[in-house]
Design a protein around this nucleic acid. Structure first.
Length: 491
RNA sequence: GGGAGGGUGGUCUAGCUUGGUAUGAUUCCUGGUUUGGGACCAGGUGGUCGGGGGUUCGAAUCCCCCCUCUCCCA
């Protein structure tokens, strides 16, 4: 360059992810225009365009997956009358402390019955289910809705991860038998693997949550924990076997083939898209900014013409030609703004655009373009007549490469321990602890509290896919172990 | 839930101790010169100092209440 660049303001990420994760994340969402926290209600966050586009793409893929598996979409009101809400005792107990209530309306003042802003939709839907479901022919009854829910969470809110309003899908299903319901739970777990591991490149593992940590009103809860590296986990979607716990109070019944009236068996499943997005950008991002799976990138190919005075037209024409070549296939953009080339590189890297094509006068004389992959920074000089095939190839493999890079070997994160002291050491060393435990029923809760206080992790539950270790005694109380559990620190 | 630190043009920031209507940079806009990894020159726009109350002739500044953000520890 002709001019020596003076110190320019750094508009990109300045905080290292490894050294200061919190600072890095805050800077990422601010500088990449993902969220704006200046909206002045605590825990209520504006999702900016770039995040919204990706979240919509995540929704679309998830919804299609659910529909392919026989779920039909519906839309529910966001207010729930208190009388519905109070029908199932455990559910009320679990959610009441977190409910936002609407108590007044318009100029007429107080409402006769206060209305809950839904924290989840069981109590809204199941009233309707009891009207809609009449016979075994209506079953299985599989539905989902995409919506916002509101929960008055504790004080530490964080954009995408934990807010008082969040965006999710909830699927609610009714079956004739417990076995079918359990199969739905398994299907939900498979769906989670397809969406989060395969599509979002997040390493996850499913645990059956202990009794004291399950969804209020559920028989059992199965939750995906994402392995965020260094032994920390974050809870992602959970699926719940409800049994007949809601069917009875909400009168969800059907006439069976034998002519008798029976209660249905229910399940529900709640993938929170805002949190899935948060986990994905936090896990995949690097010190240059966002890294996104190919299908979730708002712009997939950015073309940057390198413009020199007197040679603008030839370069812009070539950029335009490339644009037209790809526009039907990918989300593609030519950045022909007045910014310097370097600024453009930083800008689009910060926003996680998977493929960058640079085209300048030098390339034109050589009949080539320069191609850079975002996730690993690899740079290629590609002959013009091979460019379409070359980009198609990157597009096809990009998410796969990202996934392979991102998968953590669960076993390598785990340390098998037999006594409390070694558990403490393992947790401090950033490991997930695998140990014997007296019980994940309520009688094991006191031991779990000890784990929380003294070991410094949470009992995540029993592994769903396999239980390989045999332990004689509980890590804490030394009573005979009934199960193997995993303990981890969590976000 | 406990603790700490913040909030001043879009962004970052000086001023606050010791009260007198706000400093600088950057962004943005106009014009010009530029563009292969964070260019430059000139001019211009932009602020109810988070909100409310109090003290005072006078409050960004002192006092009280509230809202909100960030970080750390359960």
């Amino acid at each position: 360059m002709a001019y020596k660049k003076k110190e320019a303001p750094i508009t990109g990420i300045t905080i290292s992810k490894e050294e200061d994760f919190s600072g890095w994340f805050t800077e990422l969402i601010t500088k990449a225009d993902l969220a704006d926290v200046r909206y002045n209600i605590k825990g209520f966050v504006v999702y900016r365009e770039w995040a919204t586009i990706t979240i919509k793409k995540m929704y679309a893929k998830y919804e299609k997956c659910l529909e392919d598996k026989g779920h039909m979409p519906l839309t529910m009101p966001s207010l729930i009358p208190e009388s519905n809400f109070f029908l199932e005792a455990e559910h009320v107990k679990g959610f009441t402390p977190e409910v936002f209530w609407v108590t007044e309306a318009g100029s007429s003042g107080k409402l006769a019955e206060r209305l809950a802003l839904r924290p989840t939709s069981e109590t809204a839907l199941y009233k309707m289910y009891s009207l809609w479901i009449r016979s075994y022919k209506d079953l299985p009854f599989k539905r989902y809705l995409s919506c916002q829910v509101w929960r008055y969470e504790g004080k530490s809110t964080r954009p995408f991860f934990r807010a008082r309003e969040f965006h999710w899908i909830e699927s609610h299903n009714v079956f004739a038998t417990l076995e079918e319901a359990m199969n739905q739970v398994k299907e939900d777990m498979e769906t989670t693997y397809q969406m989060l591991r395969d599509e979002s490149c997040l390493p996850i593992i499913f645990f059956q949550r202990p009794e004291w940590d399950k969804f209020p009103g559920a028989v059992h809860t199965y939750a995906a924990d994402a392995l965020m590296g260094s032994g920390k986990v974050i809870q992602l979607p959970s699926t719940h076997l409800l049994g007949q716990n809601f069917a009875k109070p909400f009168d969800v019944k059907f006439i069976d083939t034998d002519g008798t009236e029976k209660y249905g068996y229910q399940t529900c499943y709640g993938p929170a898209q805002s949190r899935n997005y948060g986990a994905m950008i936090a896990y995949l991002g690097d010190d240059k900014g966002l890294v996104l799976p190919f299908d979730f990138a708002p712009i997939q190919v950015i073309i940057i013409p390198i413009i020199f005075k007197g040679k603008e037209k030839i370069v812009l024409d070539k950029a335009d030609k490339l644009y037209n070549l790809f526009k039907g296939k990918y989300s593609v953009k030519v950045d022909d703004s007045d910014e310097s080339a370097g600024n453009k590189f930083y800008y689009w890297e910060l926003r996680g655009v998977p493929i960058r094509i640079e085209i300048g006068p030098k390339d034109i004389t050589k009949n080539q373009v320069v191609v850079i992959k975002r996730h690993d920074g690899q740079k290629f000089f590609v002959k013009e007549n091979e460019i379409e095939k070359f980009i198609d190839n990157i597009a096809t493999n990009y998410t796969k490469e990202l996934r392979e890079k991102s998968m953590i070997d669960f076993e390598s994160q785990v340390e098998v321990v037999y006594e409390k002291d070694s558990a403490i050491e393992a947790i401090n060393n950033g490991k997930i602890v695998c140990c014997g435990f007296c019980s994940i029923d309520f009688d094991g809760e006191p031991c779990a509290e000890v784990v929380e206080k003294e070991v410094g992790g949470f009992v995540r539950g029993k592994r769903v896919d396999e239980e390989k270790h045999e332990f004689k005694t509980c890590l804490i109380c030394n009573k005979p172990a009934t199960c193997t559990v995993y303990i981890a620190r969590s976000y």
